[in-house]
């Protein structure tokens, strides 16, 4: 019960001496990364973390989980959403819905393109983005457009060009400008 009993905790280098004790439980560990993984900020603003708690372990917390949320009745069944004549909104006809899609902002088009794969809507948003001079890169699976301020340099063989482009990053949900070597057969 005296101080000598703590020596094995202080002598982690001595494997034989410190063997009985699991140091991760006695001395513990630096908790900063665990606290950070919980979403607990270092500054003085506190917010609840248990309401969006994904899992007790960081290793099984690889996706966000839907928290409790409430949709007031007044938000449900709003007519005319996404310029749709029906409620809830639908996009079913390539011919009829093209003009509706033309009214949306770029970000709305990106959102619909990525959120509704294998649908009429994905096709419609693809066509509209092309109309706006965006091109879809088949390997990067991202949309890009020419930086209007820079003229690209076409390669000698005519198969590619190097220039400055504006990409839309769907992970970070923002446009970003990048210098890039663009192969013509990679875009559509």
């Amino acid at each position: 019960f005296g101080l000598k009993a703590l020596v094995p905790l202080l002598r982690q280098d001595d494997k034989e001496l410190s063997k009985p004790y699991d140091h991760s439980m006695t001395l513990g560990a630096d908790l900063s990364s665990m606290i950070h993984s919980l979403g607990i900020p270092r500054d003085n603003t506190r917010h609840r973390v248990l309401d969006t708690f994904q899992s007790p372990w960081a290793e099984t917390s690889r996706s966000e989980v839907e928290p409790t949320f409430f949709i007031p009745d007044s938000f449900v069944g709003i007519s005319g959403v996404l310029q749709s004549p029906v409620t809830p909104p639908r996009f079913d006809s390539a011919q009829n819905d093209q003009q509706r899609v033309a009214l949306f902002q770029d970000e709305t088009l990106f959102y619909l393109f990525y959120k509704h794969p294998g649908t009429v809507l994905q096709e419609l948003t693809y066509l509209e983005l092309r109309n706006r001079n965006w091109r879809y890169h088949t390997t990067l699976r991202a949309w890009l457009t020419k930086d209007p301020l820079m003229e690209p340099e076409v390669s000698a063989d005519g198969l590619s060009e190097r220039g400055s482009y504006v990409f839309f990053d769907p992970q970070r949900w923002e446009k970003c400008q990048k210098d890039f070597l663009l192969f013509y057969n990679a875009i559509m």
């Binding site: 639908r90 996009f91 990525y114 294998g118 649908t119 994905q122 879809y136 699976r141």
Partner: peptide, 18 residues
């Protein structure tokens, strides 16, 4: 959930998962 849009064959290069 009521789908926003009907299925339609799209390019194999498009993302296939939302």
């Amino acid at each position: 959930q009521v789908p926003l849009s009907n299925p339609h064959p799209t390019s194999i290069f498009f993302p296939s998962e939302p």
